[in-house]
């Protein structure tokens, strides 16, 4: 018993449950927090726990990418957006009817799913087999090989989706202000002194019927 408690297997399972617990808790907090900054911070916590789970699976590259890309870039940008938008914190209100019904249905579904899967899947779940790679195994190489040969088509499609996202974002947000006092340098350069700038107006001199004087 003691031997099992100090073994690497036990330690790994313990870590798995700790990180999974944090992940689920953080994910719940993301959707229940009233203040959206807290939500964003909890999302960062969720990403960190997910990265830790990947580390347990010896997928270091994915774990690092998750932290770098999502925590480092996406979430920081997200926080900026939230802080710039001046989001109001919703005052505490009672649980609405929809929420009550929603929670009831969700609990019912969760219960059904547990009853359906729990018993049958218990023996299928991995017990304590560790992921162990041989020495010199390269995570990056494995990912790259799959991404650029086996899944090249989905990879390219994902890039098209990103392009569409960019186009859509710009299309929906770019606005030209009507009160913008912008002078085009191009038209400024093309101004000709005698054509566009100065105009000699010829007027006939007034004759007769002049007002004033003392005729």
């Amino acid at each position: 018993m003691i031997e099992y408690l100090i073994s690497a297997e036990f330690y790994q399972i313990l870590l798995f449950y700790v990180y999974s617990g944090i992940l689920i808790g953080a994910a719940l907090a993301v959707v229940t927090m009233r203040n959206s900054i807290y939500s964003a911070l909890f999302l960062i916590l969720a990403f960190f726990s997910a990265a830790a789970l990947w580390l347990l699976l010896e997928a270091e590259f994915l774990a690092l990418t998750l932290v770098l890309v999502y925590v480092g870039a996406v979430m920081v940008l997200f926080l900026f957006v939230i802080m710039m938008l001046d989001v109001k914190i919703k005052p505490k209100s009672g649980i609405s009817m929809y929420t009550k019904v929603g929670i009831f249905v969700a609990l019912l579904m969760a219960l059904e799913m547990i009853m359906l899967l729990g018993k049958k899947m218990a023996h299928v779940l991995p017990q304590d087999d560790l992921v162990k790679h041989v020495k010199g195994y390269s995570n990056v190489k494995e990912v790259a090989e799959n991404l650029y040969t086996q899944y090249i088509l989905p990879f390219e499609l994902a890039s098209v989706i990103l392009l569409v996202a960019i186009v859509a974002a710009i299309l929906l947000t770019l606005r030209k202000r009507s009160d913008y006092k912008y002078v085009s340098p191009e038209s400024q350069v093309h101004v000709k002194a005698n054509k566009n700038r100065m105009r000699v107006v010829k007027m006939e001199t007034e004759k007769g019927n002049y007002i004033g004087g003392d005729e």
Partner: peptide, 13 residues
Amino acid sequence: YLGLELLALSSYA
């Protein structure tokens, strides 16, 4: 799934 998302994202916009 990616085809579906490509269509859906264009439709949303």
